[in-house]
Write a protein that binds this DNA or RNA. Sequence first.
DNA 1: GCGTTTGGCGCTCATATGAGCACTATAGCC
DNA 2: GGCTATAGTGCTCATATGAGCGCCAAACGC
Lengths: 324, 324
Amino acid sequence: MSAKRRPLGFTDSVQAASIAHRFYVRGRSKLEIAHEFGMSRFKVARILDLARESGLVRVEFDLPAAVEPGLSADLRSAYGLQQALVLERADRRETRPEMRRRIGTLAARLLEEIATKDDVIGLSWARSVNVMTEEITALPRCPIVQLCGVQAGMDMRDRSVETVSRLATVSGGEAYPIFAPLVLPDRRTTETLRRQPGIAETFGQFRHLTKAVVSIGAWEPGESTVYDSLTPAERDAISKRGAKAEVAARLFDADGNALSTGLAHHVLAISHEELRQVPEVVALGYSAPKAEAIDAVLRSGMVTTLITDAETAELTLRLAQSRG
Amino acid sequence: MSAKRRPLGFTDSVQAASIAHRFYVRGRSKLEIAHEFGMSRFKVARILDLARESGLVRVEFDLPAAVEPGLSADLRSAYGLQQALVLERADRRETRPEMRRRIGTLAARLLEEIATKDDVIGLSWARSVNVMTEEITALPRCPIVQLCGVQAGMDMRDRSVETVSRLATVSGGEAYPIFAPLVLPDRRTTETLRRQPGIAETFGQFRHLTKAVVSIGAWEPGESTVYDSLTPAERDAISKRGAKAEVAARLFDADGNALSTGLAHHVLAISHEELRQVPEVVALGYSAPKAEAIDAVLRSGMVTTLITDAETAELTLRLAQSRG
DNA sequence: GCGTTTGGCGCTCATATGAGCACTATAGCC
DNA sequence: GGCTATAGTGCTCATATGAGCGCCAAACGC
């Protein structure tokens, strides 16, 4: 990207650095610097540009979290998000659990900050959301609502079924869990369960939600717990309808339109409409294969804050830019 | 200096960092950023100021040498120098030889760059200058002239008498050494030696000098090889005359005026006048006790480039500022 | 309740700045 | 020598920016 040509000489470098120091660190005007160094303000400007382009001056950020400020702003603007948090590139190739840990921790820091005592917070079912709840250490006293049933395929050993209860314990507020599977065999069972006392109560909270934390799944193997739990026939049927992304078992096509399939009637989860009513939706989505899905969900306009990794952010941005 | 108050929140930090990235890294205008982030350009400006003051954005310099760009520019301006090179502060307390090594290396890099084939380069007698010659690996084919006799007290084990010859070997040019002591017992001996074939030839080169590298000594124990080589009576007599600094055995008072003492007539060295005629004089001066001496020599207007360490630079600057 | 304070915001207007252009000097080339 | 390519320079003028101010709203004391 940047033409790494050095301002050749040693003397020139020192001069450029001195000028850059005056400008960037001390905040002096270029005119002032020009007078001091006995040159025109144009030359000062050119030297500064050169110093930046050549990498002689580096700007670093001491953020409380490992966030890429540039990519974050790019994503924010590209999709009109309220906020985007793009995880800094790791030094080495990361494993998925490592990345999930970092994404979840970032989400935890965010939720800790934005949550107020008047919030009603919804959590979708996902490993990254689970990590988030583990990393949260303090939260105002507010109700925590589970947005969808439990995905059977998920790893239960780490007490992940207790996500909502754990967070409610931290917050000191009410917990509204859903002790039932996310995907059910048929519509009738789904309806029956939905009317169960505990579950109905949780569903009743959906319209009071002020914040939600969800995970974005891509409609392909290994990128969505819902996808992975269906039969090949079901998956393909849904794929043929144009499904690209999934949030809390609700589907989206490539353009971010809510997709109604048969699946909708046999999952225990918040509806598209109810989720759209939530004023603040934080979506977690990481790993390169999810870029298209993230693009789709962001286009739905339902998400206010995205948390992702640098590589995925770049891929997603490329999709946004290719549309102009 | 800087009020280290953070822009409080995590979210705010990220936003500030994003804005700072747009501004400092991408070089966008504040107005542009304001539109992108949906705020007034004034708010952008305030956020940027806050980000700098709070230390959220740090500007770093990738210089080819460990130079403090800010202090260098300050010194340059304070004394109207052509250039100043201030060595970066070391991580830990340095010994004198360590600092000398760094100063000498810096001088080497500078001389390597500024020397041209048409130059006639003079070297004064000093350990730091000696280090410089050791560190120089390439030089255009130009004559190297010794500016003063050899100081007997100096460490000879490291072939330091050969400074001039060594550099001439590197450059491939002529060497004009002075194989005689710097300080002599009386005027007559001095005059006799000065007329010796080799020495007279070297003295004859002084008026052709285009560049000189000299070391600044302070008129106090341990800060000048000349001072250290005199008898207490001689030292004190010179001190009473107001001597503060010494360059190639030539003395300066606190205001940078050339000081004529009896010493002038029994040293083998370039004169004040001849040194002043040299278009480019690089002076090396390090260690805190030399600050006053450096201030004095710089005020003489004879020096075009100063190389020093950060601590001494600050002390010297304070002297300059106290005069306004 | 009612001042009062405090901090954040965006305005005006003088100043600083950037884009683009024209001019100059130097180097290479015939 | 003369001719062109090239890089470096500082200009004009439209635009971006900063200092200082007044406005407004939330927080606070009584």
